[in-house]
């Protein structure tokens, strides 16, 4: 190695160190901005001297009263509603989405392309407008107001077939020759899906479960309309939002914050654990698809 290349190498090394430090600084600055709302909501949830909105962030008196007060309200009920809806939806939607994606990825039938395009375009229709008619359908079935949770589950899973996009993309990356070999060996389609495709698709299965869980967890538009003011049928987003109506906000703001923290915690923890798979799921599905 000549002297000049060695020098150049040194230069590269220092310049790389400088670049890395710069990147770190930029990332830390962005992260701080990103964290501000979370810091706000956590700090406010421990503020006990005043229950309304105030002009400062750090509490003057700390306490956990906002959390214990939650249990005197309908909040536990809302939390249960949301949790049940999210859990059931996660299970059923995952099954539907994976079957749908597998079908669209592996089967070749006459209406395949039109069907895919149709569902993508149907997704453009503003959901809230089908809501009026949907509400009537669900009301006839007795699934509104106090019984909103099963009604909501129906709504969530019914539209789940349209979410085939990412997982189909992932399945497309698994070579067809694997299926063909298994078919020759006498495996049925279902066996291929369970024994060959799914074990190879762990990231996308987890991605699908997570997405399916998060949708109902944060849903507001449908949940609000289908619960239609009945407190027992609300989910957390609706319940918390209603706490902040103009005449109630001064009593409920800090309690809203503690509720918000409890809503954010499980999904954040879940995500932290499954983060690796989630990223791989998006990687394989959205881009290569």
């Amino acid at each position: 190695m000549s002297e000049t290349t060695a020098k150049r190498h040194m230069g590269l090394k220092t310049s790389r160190a400088i670049t890395n430090t710069t990147i770190h600084i930029v990332l830390i600055v962005i992260s701080i901005i990103w964290l501000i709302p979370f810091v706000c909501i956590v700090l406010q949830s421990f503020r006990v001297e005043n229950t309304g909105q105030v002009g400062y962030v750090i509490p003057k008196v700390w306490g956990t009263a906002n959390y214990s007060n939650l249990f005197q309200t309908d909040f536990p009920r809302w939390y249960t509603n949301t949790f049940i809806a999210a859990l059931v939806t996660a299970v059923l939607q995952t099954v539907i989405v994976l079957c749908m994606s597998y079908t669209l990825s592996r089967f070749r039938f006459k209406m395949r392309q039109p069907l895919m395009r149709f569902m993508l375009i149907l997704g453009m229709f503003p959901g809230m407008l089908s809501m009026i008619i949907l509400y009537r359908v669900l009301k006839d079935l007795g699934l509104t107001q106090e019984n909103a949770t099963p009604g909501l589950i129906l709504v969530y899973i019914a539209s789940s077939g349209m979410g085939y996009y990412v997982s189909k993309g992932f399945f497309d990356t698994i070579p067809m020759s694997l299926d063909e070999a298994a078919r020759i060996d006498g495996a049925t389609r279902a066996q291929i899906l369970y024994k060959i495709i799914l074990p190879l698709s762990k990231p996308i299965v987890i991605y699908t479960i997570l997405t399916a869980f998060m949708g109902p967890w944060g849903d507001f538009v449908f949940a609000r309309y289908i619960a239609f003011g009945a407190s027992a049928g609300k989910n957390v987003a609706v319940g918390l939002y209603d706490w902040l109506s103009r005449d109630q906000i001064s009593n409920n703001y800090t309690m809203f914050c503690s509720g918000g923290v409890l809503v954010a915690l499980p999904v954040t923890i879940l995500f932290m654990f499954l983060q690796k798979y989630y990223v791989e799921g998006v990687t394989g599905g959205a881009v290569k698809g």
Binding site: W34, P37, F220, L240, G260, A264, T268
Partner: peptide, 20 residues
């Protein structure tokens, strides 16, 4: 960092909107 930047997406827009 990747996980951190993604987290706002996890929690519904309504709760976070109210915090903002």
């Amino acid at each position: 960092y990747r996980a951190g930047f993604f987290v706002p997406n996890l929690i519904g827009g309504i709760v976070l909107g109210l915090v903002w």
